[in-house]
């Protein structure tokens, strides 16, 4: 899974530790993605300040069936590269961030998605720190450049892809710029 808390500094760090506690407790019951997201929303709604929220993607990977079942709660969409078509794109899925609706009304915004992988496919999870990295001209790295970078580096190993994308982001923002935000980047390559 991947998650991101809104805000920065002490309050964000505090919310993140609460989030990790909630997530670690919930996975003990091996819930399906929809149940996990709904329960996480109820639990986090009781501890987050009213103007704070958390985004997450929870995935269950079944290596026997070569399938992934997942639910997205307002987090950046999954970037997926298909080895057969050599094409990368974002997987469209509906969802709503955790802590935005703090009652049962949230449940209807949680959806189950499923995908099947083939050898050579690549799945990328990331946080908005990557997308919103800005260069000197205040231009964002953006979704398009990330997609192009994945297609360009697809022949490499998962670790090399991660490293190459990071280098692309740093090259884009330029030597004079610092990353404004923290970022996380996870690359899975299927054999």
């Amino acid at each position: 899974m991947m998650g991101d808390v809104s805000g920065k500094g002490t309050s964000a760090a505090f919310n993140m530790s609460q989030m990790k506690g909630v997530f670690h407790s919930l996975v003990l019951d091996h819930p399906q993605p929809v149940a996990f997201i709904r329960k996480a929303n109820l639990a986090l709604s009781k501890c987050l300040e009213r103007n704070h929220f958390i985004t997450a993607i929870y995935m269950l990977v079944n290596t026997n069936e070569k399938s992934i079942r997942y639910s997205r709660a307002g987090h950046c969409p999954i970037l997926y590269y298909r080895g057969t078509t050599e094409h990368a794109d974002y997987l469209a899925s509906e969802g709503l961030g955790l802590g935005i609706l703090r009652n049962d009304g949230y449940d209807r915004y949680v959806h189950l998605n499923e995908l099947h992988w083939s050898s050579g496919d690549i799945l990328v999870l990331f946080t908005d720190g990557i997308i919103e990295a800005k260069n000197e001209q205040q231009e964002e790295f953006g979704y398009m450049r990330l997609k192009e970078a994945l297609a360009l580096h697809a022949g490499k190993s998962a670790q090399e892809i991660q490293e190459s994308i990071k280098q692309d982001v740093y090259r884009f923002i330029g030597k004079q710029q610092y990353m404004d935000d923290d970022y996380t980047l996870l690359v899975l390559k299927f054999n």
Binding site: F53, T55, A73, G74, H75, C76, P77, E94, G95, L96, G97, I100, L101, Y109
Partner: peptide
Amino acid sequence: QILGLDQL
């Protein structure tokens, strides 16, 4: 849209 706020 990504956060889902466009639905609310």
